[in-house]
Every structure is written in structure tokens, then in C-alpha cells.
Amino acid sequence: MKAETIESWTIEYDGTRALHPVGDGCELYYELRGKGPTLTFVSTIYVVSTAWRNYTSRLAPDHRILTYDLRNQGASSGTAENFQQHCDDLASLLDALNIEQTYLVGTSISTLICRDFAVAHPDRVAGLILVGPPFSPWGSSRRRRIAQSWLSAVEEGGARRLFDLIYPIVFGDRAIAEGGSAAYLALRERFLAMNSKAQLRANLQEAVNAGDEVEKLSAINAPTLLLAGDDDFSTTESTLHAASTLLGNAMVEIIPECGHLPYAEKTKEFENSIGRFVAAVEDGTFTPGSRQ
């Protein structure tokens, strides 16, 4: 990626920590800012909550933005016994912040948390934005094998081995070519600074154990945006359309020249897509379908 693309990538934890106790000794780090329809960003394994500051600058003026670290991630404490806990944690956090309804933004494996939350708490979800969702109408076999190979990489070579495995997978052709070795080394150093082997191992084990339970998609009525780069390793446009058929009230949007991390590679397009979707739902003009 070009230097200007990642100009504002700052993910340091500042001094204004807000921690929400969820009742089992775990505390969730969160940040809440802005006014407007609430967008809750559910972090995934390798994206800590503070990173979302850099991918929400265009959304921030017109939306209330909630970001948080999953348990056992970033500045949150605790351990996860099962994937369901993330769904319960989110409900607890929303309760504590008096957020009755929100749009949920999930990316990669955290789209499963968003999906489960939408099934369990349909009245609390104004809409779903699922970015690079790994679920497939044909089941979880491929996703689990990928997660298992990533877990094996962590076990054998720690965070460095995992980074080397995922870097050429999650970023698109163009980003990797334009970034060169300097971007690779800078992002590797950042990744190693922010992710411990123990946390990565635990989070990946959760991903291996998580059930895709595709049939759950049929239980979701919330307007849903399925968003992915056209160079995303984890899904295809046809897979997204098949998932949208199951969802019933969903649209598919593809961002060109972009891999698994559209928020990092095509930040403007990512934010504009979310902004359009939320505006359409809010004013009642959302229609299922496709956009590219």
C-alpha cells in the first residue's frame, strides 16, 4: 500500500481507557464517540479496537461509533471459554451503555459474532455490515481448515510465522506490490508489537471451534450488507450472493482491487459503503440486491 494510504494508522491505547466489567472478572476495553445512528465495530482476531479510529474518520461526524476489544484481546482481560461469550459480552456492553439498537460491523471471523447476536437479539440490530465474511452456504470446512493452519503457524513459529502466512493472503495484489518490503516490515513490526502468541493462539482456537451454522442466516431479518474486496481469499462474489439469498434482506457490494481488509486497503470506499447502507436503512430506501 502507498504511504499515504496508511497515513493515519495509529493504534496506540491512549490514557482515556474505559473498561466495562462483564461479570466473570473480564473487563472489556471500549471507546464510544460521536452522535447519530450507532455503529458498533466488532473486532476480529488481528484488528484491535483502536485501529478502527483510522477507518471511521468519514463516518464519525454523522454516527455514534462504538469500538471495543474482545475478551482476551488488546486491552481487554479475561479468557473465552466458548464463542458464545462474545455475543453475551456485546449484549452486556450495549446494556451498560444504554444502547438499545445498533448497526453491527463485523469483519472476517467476527462476522459470526454479529450473526449470532442478530439471531439472539433481533430487536437490537438495526442492520448488519459483514465485511469479508468467512461463512459459506456450503459449510465451515474450508474456513476451519484455514483457521487450523493459522493456529499451527502460531504454535510452530509464534506471531511472526502467522504474520508471514497471512500477510500475502489477507492483503490484495496491488497493496502488497505497492507497499514493498518497507510496508511489510513496518506492518510486521506493528503486528508483533500488538499481538502476543498466547492471545493469538487462544483467539485462533476459538475460530477453529466456532460453528458456522449456516442455517442461522435464514433467521436474520435485519437489513444486511455483505461487503468484500474482489481479491478476498476467504470468499467470492458468488458465495456472497448465495449467502444473501439465505439472508433474504441483504445486498452484496464488492470493492475492486482490494483483499480481505477493505477498511485498510480502501478506507474511503469502505466508509462510503457503510455510510450509504446506513443512510438507506435509516430513510427506508434499502433494497436487497447488488452493487459494485
Partner: peptide, 16 residues
């Protein structure tokens, strides 16, 4: 180097 608090872009700019 991490203790100096460089952002990702600062780190990239440093390497470049």
C-alpha cells in the same frame, strides 16, 4: 523501538 510509540505510518516513513 516500540517504546517510542511510533505509529504504523511513522514506522513506515522511518523505514522508507
Amino acid at each position: 523501538l516500540r517504546a517510542l510509540g511510533l505509529t504504523s505510518v511513522q514506522l513506515l516513513r522511518f523505514f522508507v
